[in-house]
Amino acid sequence: MTPDLPVFNQQPLYHTDLGAAYVADSLDMLRQLPDNSINLVMTSPPFALQRQKDYGNKDQHEYIDWLTEFATLVYQKLTPDGSFVLDLGGAYQKGLPVRSLYNYRVLIRFCDEIGFHLAEEFFWFNPSKLPSPIEWVNKRKIRAKDSVNTVWWLSKTEWPKADVSKVLAEYSERMKKLIKDPEAYYSPAKRPSGHDIGSSFGKDNGGSIPSNLLQISNSEANSQYLKLCKEVGIQAHPARFPAKLPEFFIRYLTEPNDLVVDIFGGSNTTGHVCESEGRRWLAFEQLQEYLSASVFRFMQDQPIESIKTTFAELMENKIKHIKSNGQGKLF
C-alpha cells in the first residue's frame, strides 16, 4: 500500500500505488479518516427515485435525512480549502407531472445546517439521454425530455482551492481566427455597460473559460468497461457517470497527489480518472460485484483470461495490487 494513503481497520478489495477501493459502508470509512484530510469528495449518490433500483436508491421522503448523514462527515473530513461535488439527477413527484424539489432541498439543508457554501452550481447536460419519464414525455407528451442533472460544488470555506485555467475549453473556430488576426474580426469598444474590453480578445490564453453548463454525453455503449462486463458475464453498474464529469472537477479543484474520495464508488470512474491525473484516491462501495468489476477499468489492455481470473479472485476477497503506469492501465 502507498504509505500516503489513510489506513483503515479493513483491507481494500484492490489497490494501486495511488489509491484503494473498499467494499464498505462509507459512513464507517469516513469516521476513520482524520479530520481536514480530504481535498475533494467527488460523487454521484443513488438518486431519490420513486422506483427502487438495483443500486439501492432511497425514497424521496427518506433521501435528504439519509444523505445529510454523509455530508456532515464529509464536512469534517475536508481540508479547509476542500470541496464536495455532488451530482444529483432530477425526479418527478409520484404519479404527477410535477418536479420534486429534493435536490434543491439537499442544497439548502447542507448550507443552512451543516455549514457548506455553494461555491457554484453546475448543470450537466447529457444530450444522449433517452426521453424520460415515459409517462409524461412519450405517452402523454406533456413534458420535455429530462436531460440535465444538477451538480452542486460545495465548499468548506468561501475561498476553496480552484484554478479554472486547468479546465479551459477549446476555442471555437471563430475565436481561433480572431486570435490569429484580431484587427480583421474585432474593433475594441466600450460595451453599453461602460466596460472597456480593449483588445484582450486577441490574446491566446490556451483556451476559453468554461461555463457552468457542462455538455457531456453519457453514451459508452462500446466502452471497454461494458465489453469486459459482457465478456465476464456480469451486469455493469446501471448508473455510471461519464469520466469527463469527474475529470473536469478533479482537474479544476485539486493538484497532483491531493486526496480524492468517492463515497458511492459504483464502477469507480472517479478512481480511474484520479489514477490518470496523478491524484491519490479512495473508493467506497457496498456492493462487492460492482466494485470487483470496476477493476476492469484498470485492466483494459490485459488478456481476457487474466481479467476473468482477477475478477474471480476479487469476488473471493483476495486482495489484489494493480500495478499502474499512471494512466489507469495495468502493466
Rank of each mutant, 00 (worst) to 15 (best):
M1N: 07
T2Q: 10
T2C: 04
P3N: 05
L5R: 03
P6C: 11
V7Y: 06
F8Y: 09
F8C: 07
F8G: 08
P12T: 05
D17K: 06
G19C: 08
D25E: 08
S26E: 03
L27W: 00
L30G: 05
L33R: 03
P34C: 07
P34Y: 01
D35L: 00
N36V: 01
S37D: 06
N39M: 00
N39K: 05
L40G: 04
V41G: 02
V41L: 03
V41P: 01
P45C: 03
F47Q: 02
A48K: 00
L49V: 04
L49H: 00
Q50M: 05
Q52D: 08
N57I: 07
K58Q: 14
E62Y: 06
D65G: 03
L67E: 02
A71Y: 10
T79G: 04
P80H: 13
V85K: 03
D87W: 00
S100C: 06
N103C: 07
F110R: 00
E113F: 10
H117F: 15
L118G: 03
E120N: 15
E121A: 14
N126Q: 11
S128E: 10
S128A: 15
K129E: 15
K129R: 15
K129Y: 09
S132K: 07
W136N: 07
N138F: 00
K139Y: 13
R140C: 05
I142T: 12
A144S: 15
A144E: 12
K145P: 04
N149R: 14
W152S: 06
K156N: 13
P160H: 13
P160I: 12
V164N: 00
V164G: 00
S165A: 13
K166L: 10
L168Q: 10
A169R: 09
K177R: 15
K180D: 14
E183L: 05
R191L: 12
P192S: 08
H195Q: 07
S200C: 04
F201D: 10
G202Q: 02
G207R: 03
S208Q: 10
I209W: 01
I209F: 06
S211R: 14
L213M: 14
I216V: 15
S219C: 11
S219V: 07
N222D: 15
N222F: 14
L226N: 14
E231I: 02
I234Q: 08
A239I: 06
P242H: 09
K244T: 04
K244Y: 04
L245C: 11
F249P: 01
I250K: 02
I250Q: 07
E255K: 09
V260D: 01
V261P: 02
D262R: 06
F264Q: 01
F264L: 06
F264P: 02
G265I: 07
G266F: 11
H272Q: 04
C274H: 08
E275H: 08
A283K: 00
A283V: 14
Q286L: 12
Q286R: 12
Q288M: 08
L291K: 03
L291D: 05
Q302C: 13
Q302F: 03
Q302N: 06
S306N: 07
S306F: 09
I307F: 03
K308V: 02
T310K: 06
T310Q: 05
T310L: 13
A312S: 11
A312Q: 06
K323W: 05
G326N: 09
G328A: 08
K329T: 13
